[in-house]
Design a protein around this nucleic acid. Structure first.
Lengths: 226, 226
DNA sequence: ACGGGATATCAAGGTTTTCTCAAGGCCAAG
DNA sequence: CTTGGCCTTGAGAAAACCTTGATATCCCGT
C-alpha cells in the first residue's frame, strides 16, 4: 500500500513495528542507523519515515534536519525520551508526529494511517469531494449523495474547474480559458447556459443554489452546502 | 496567522488553550458545544479544528464524522479518555492528532505548528481580520462574529479597500479610485450611500459606529471595535 | 448658539448582469 | 442519410445592483 522506511536500532522494536506495518499491507524497509536510513530514503522516495531519536551514529534531530533538507515526506518519531522540551524541539525540527515508548502498536498503526491519509492523498488525488458531491477526475464521473450524474463533457469540465478551486470565486473568463481552451471567440453566455444545465442536474436552481453560487458581477463559486 | 476553531466545554481548558494559541498570533474562535462549533466551522473555513471528545451535546466521534463529511481541515482531538481503543477509533474516524489531558501547552502548540505546517496554511484563501470581522478575499465573502454578510459587489470591494488599510483614514476620492476604477465621473455621494448600506449590514449606524468611523472632512477608517 | 458645509438616509428610477427557454448547427454513430 | 447528443447563440424576462435627487442630520468654526 505505502512505502515506509523505519529507522530504529533496537532490533526487537524494529521487528515488532515492521511486522505490524507489513501486516497492514505496507512495504517496509528498515535501517538500524541514521546513515543507512538516509540512503534508503534517497533511493526509494518513501511515503512515510518512522525514526527513533536515539540512533547510534547521529543525533535524531540532526537526521530529521537532513531529511527535511531534501524531502517533505511525513516523519513520525518514536523514542523513549519523553521530556516535553524534547518533544517540542523535535516537532519544530520538522517531525509530524511523536510517539513515546513504550507505545501501543495499535495506536502506532492508527497514527500511521492518519499521516498517510494526509500525505498520500495530497499528491495523486484525483478525486474531489465537496459536501455530498464527489468528482472522480480520472474516471470522469461525478455523483451527488451517491447517485451518479450524467454530465456532458463540457459540463464535467466546468464542474471540475470549479471544484479544483472550490470556495473561490472563478470568473467566466477564467472558466472559458480553463474549459474551452483558447483562443476562443465565444461569448461568456455559453458558460451561463452550461451552468444552468449543471444546476438542473445537481437538483438546484439559480435562485436557490446549493453548490453553485453566483457572485454577481464577478463569477461563480462552488461551495459546500449548509 | 491561522484561523483555528476550538470546541471544548470545559471553560478553564478552553481559556487556557485559546489564550496560548492567540499568543502565537492565531485567530481563535471557541465553542462549547459540538453544534455551535460546527456552525463556526461552516462559516469560517478554518485552518485547524481542535476539539474535545466529551462534548455535552454530541459524541465526539459523531462530530468528527460530520466535520469530515464536509471538510478535510486538520483536526486535533484533546481529551481525558486515554484508552488505546478510543485513540485508535478516533484517529481512524479522521482525526489527525490525539492529545491526552492533562497535556503540556508547549507540546500542544508544537503539534499545532506541525499540523499547520502540513496543512499548507490556507492555500488560496487570503483573509483579513478586523476584530470580529473576517473578510475572505478569494471567496469574496465576509462575516461578523461568525454570521455571514450578504454584500453586493461594490459593498464588498468597499469593505475590502478599507480593510486593506485598516486603522488608516481613507478619503472618498481614494475609495472611488480603488473601488470604482477610473476615470469615473460619479459623485462621491455614491460612496456615502454604499457606506450607509455597509453599516446597516454590519449592524451599526453612523452615529454609533463600531467598525466604520467617519473622520469628518477627511474620510473613513475601519477600526477594530472596543 | 448659529450657519455653512459635510455626511447620512430614504426612495425612486435606470442600468447591468444573469437566467432560462428555444432554435439552429455540428459531428459522430447507426 | 438519418438520428441523437452536444454545443452555441439569440432574446425576453427577471433579478440584482448602482446612481441620483431630496431631505434630514451632524460637525465644526465663529
Amino acid at each position: 500500500m505505502a512505502q515506509i522506511i523505519l529507522i530504529e536500532d533496537d532490533i526487537e522494536i524494529r521487528r515488532l513495528v515492521a511486522d505490524a506495518l507489513a501486516a497492514e499491507g505496507h512495504d517496509v524497509e528498515t535501517a538500524a542507523t541514521a546513515m543507512s536510513g538516509l540512503e534508503l530514503g534517497i533511493r526509494n522516495t518513501p511515503d512515510l519515515v518512522i525514526m527513533d531519536l536515539g540512533l547510534p551514529d547521529l543525533d535524531g534531530n540532526e537526521l530529521l534536519r537532513m531529511i527535511r533538507a531534501i524531502s517533505s515526506v511525513p516523519v513520525m518519531v518514536i523514542t523513549a525520551r519523553g521530556a516535553d522540551e524534547t518533544v517540542v524541539r523535535t516537532l519544530d525540527a520538522g517531525a509530524d508526529d511523536y510517539l513515546i515508548k513504550p507505545f501501543s502498536v495499535a495506536q502506532l498503526l492508527a497514527r500511521v494511517r492518519a499521516l498517510l491519509r494526509r500525505g498520500g492523498l495530497a499528491e495523486g488525488s484525483d478525486r474531489i469531494t465537496v459536501g455530498g458531491l464527489v468528482i472522480d477526475i480520472s474516471a470522469r464521473e461525478a455523483a451527488v449523495d451517491g447517485t451518479a450524474l450524467d454530465l456532458s463533457p463540457k459540463e464535467f469540465d466546468l464542474l471540475r474547474a470549479l471544484a479544483e478551486r472550490q470556495g473561490e470565486v472563478v470568473t467566466k473568463r477564467e472558466l472559458l480559458a480553463e474549459v474551452w481552451r483558447e483562443p476562443y471567440g465565444g461569448s461568456e453566455r455559453t458558460v451561463d447556459v452550461h451552468l444552468s444545465w449543471l444546476r438542473k442536474k445537481l437538483g438546484e436552481t439559480a435562485s436557490d443554489p446549493k453548490y453553485l453560487k453566483t457572485i454577481h458581477g464577478v463569477g461563480i463559486k462552488l461551495v459546500t452546502p449548509d
